[in-house]
Write a protein that binds this DNA or RNA. Structure first.
Lengths: 333, 333
DNA sequence: CGCGCCGCGTATAACGATGGAAATCCTGGG
DNA sequence: CCCAGGATTTCCATCGTTATACGCGGCGCG
């Protein structure tokens, strides 16, 4: 079922059918109707593969996220799928597990030539990995990491958001604010949020106690639980916890609960991402809420605007955020 | 950068380069090495679009899920991406919101000719919608709904799983077991799990009280919370709750907590899906755990095995499941 | 010694669609 | 009645790959 078949059926040339399909201006009404009838009758659908071979575009953007299991990324993916659909684009999904090797693979475009662009949320990727990129498809970066590279980057102001979160804890009279989630090994991923934590403490004239920084292997519930347990086992009893993300915060709250510590009376907790899950626990979670819809829209627009190799200045786009205060800091009201 | 360029550079014909790229058997070592050198030197990568136009395959399967925000589907999507990658396939993602209109659109293949197959998890879709399907790409169905249609269907034994869950509650001495999550309007989606609930009560010689069935609009935390609240407001105080899925269960537990009811002492709760989230609440959630990895593998294999229009008998594939007992029924141990 | 086959490589035609040039059809003016 | 000139439609090349058919030596065999 191709243009040829329709052309045969309608008794016209292939190109005329193509003109009808593409709403070409100079086609008589009569001809348009006649061709359209054949199209409908045969149930013709254009073969996008062929069209794209010819046009050089595929109508597909790839989205590479660390992990779909994390609701923040799942929710973001959902928004991006919708934002792309609004531009008649579809999304090819991949996840990297946050591992540098896979991130490089994705960025080098192992699947190149099928996608028009790439939206990448890197975790371990280093700037040098992207510099070597000889690929021509546009890339947009998401997330906390900052790179001095000629690509658009969309993120909230992580330092300000973290500072705000910690300030909120301090305003409640807390003094020993732990930070959960500085990645073990590479200290990069949590750098900005850690910086915000430090700044807020400094501003308040407090000393940032490095022993209250707990490293994690990953960014899941279990990692948060392990980090919290390690902190308590080491004899530290902070009166507040600021976590790298909500999952870590929730894992930490579970451990606090197991140890008989009350949230927020004994330990106040703030997370990051504002995932739905945090709104339905026994203690709802105070969290930094990034504007996911905005990030999604910007990411799609940014990548599409660079399609034809259009090289405008790379931009840092700051998405909005706000701190949603809930029971894990305020208690039941 | 195409085969032609490489051919020119190596001083051979286009097809010979193609033969080298595809590991065609009858190529001399010397020739292979010479061509390979040119390939490396020029950094050539095959254009998959063109390859697929020629071969009639795209190397892409579409995955259409109700919603990515639900961690069950997000986790399943992650597994499917991995399973597809094992076959050198990638996944094109879409979500339908569980709305019939969008499910039809997806099944009719509005994006046809870019994908080789479709893995669809329908919610409202009716059998007749699929019968009208004139598409040629293979489809595999996932999930609870059962259709008498010539497509493979992969799911756990929902009736048995639900029966098992309710039996577990009964074995703990509970007698008034509510069911949360029968979809308002179309009663289809929860049919099998509801059936299992009924069977387990019957077996135990209890009467299934329809007033303990609470309808929901969707399948999220908020829906579970609303349903639980409605049940309590209506003056019913079950001593156990079996929820259509974990999110509904967790939403319900939140409401129980707000009303001062203890889980599991006052009300025991069982969910369905075994999402990670359920393992880290203040009260961990007993849940039916489907074998997601198996479902994902089977879905991918099933769809790929039907690629060339190979028409073997449609199959009902039952994935395994087990009931994971946690605090929401057993209490802290 | 010549024939036919085998192994290796090449030339050419698809795959389905589109862009641009060429061909054709009108219409109206001279 | 012919032709210019614009509006339509057709023809042809092309995107990058792969399938098919074929060319071309060399070698075994009768």
């Amino acid at each position: 079922m191709s243009l040829k078949d329709v052309a045969l059926h309608a008794g016209v040339s292939v190109k005329t059918v193509s003109n009808v399909v593409n709403d070409f201006p100079h086609v008589t009404e009569a001809m348009r109707a006649r061709v359209q009838r054949s199209i409908d009758e045969l149930g013709y659908r254009p073969n996008l593969t062929a069209r794209h071979l010819r046009k050089g575009r595929t109508g597909i953007v790839a989205l590479a996220l660390p992990e779909l299991g994390n609701p923040y990324f799942a929710e973001l993916a959902a928004e991006i799928v919708d934002a792309a659909a609004a531009h008649d684009y579809t999304v090819l999904l991949d996840h990297t597990g946050g591992r540098r090797e896979r991130e490089i693979l994705v960025s080098q475009g192992f699947r190149t030539r099928v996608i028009d662009g790439l939206i990448l949320s890197p975790i371990e990727l280093e700037a040098e990995d992207l510099e070597e990129r000889a690929e021509q498809v546009p890339v947009v970066l998401l997330g906390e990491r900052e790179y001095d590279l000629p690509y658009d980057h969309i993120a909230i102001d992580n330092v300000a958001a973290a500072r705000e979160a910690v300030r909120h804890l301090l305003s409640l009279g807390r003094r020993d604010v732990a930070f959960l989630g500085a990645r073990r090994g590479s200290s990069q991923p949590a750098r900005l949020r850690l910086l915000g934590w430090r700044q807020a403490l400094d501003e308040a004239g407090l000393v940032a106690d490095d022993r209250l920084i707990a490293a994690t292997d990953g960014w899941g519930h279990a990692d948060g639980a392990a980090a919290m347990a390690a902190l308590l086992d080491a004899g530290h009893r902070p009166d507040a916890v600021f976590a790298y993300n909500d999952l870590i915060a929730i894992g930490a709250m579970r451990v606090l609960h197991e140890r008989g510590l009350r949230v927020p009376e004994d330990v106040a907790v703030v997370g990051f991402d504002d995932v739905v899950e945090g709104r339905f626990g026994a203690v709802t979670l105070t969290s930094v809420s990034p504007d996911k819809a905005f990030i999604a829209r910007q990411a799609v627009e940014s990548v599409l605007s660079r399609l034809g190799g259009a090289r405008h200045e790379p931009r840092r786009i700051h998405a909005g955020h706000c701190l949603v205060r809930r029971e894990s800091t305020l208690g039941r009201v």
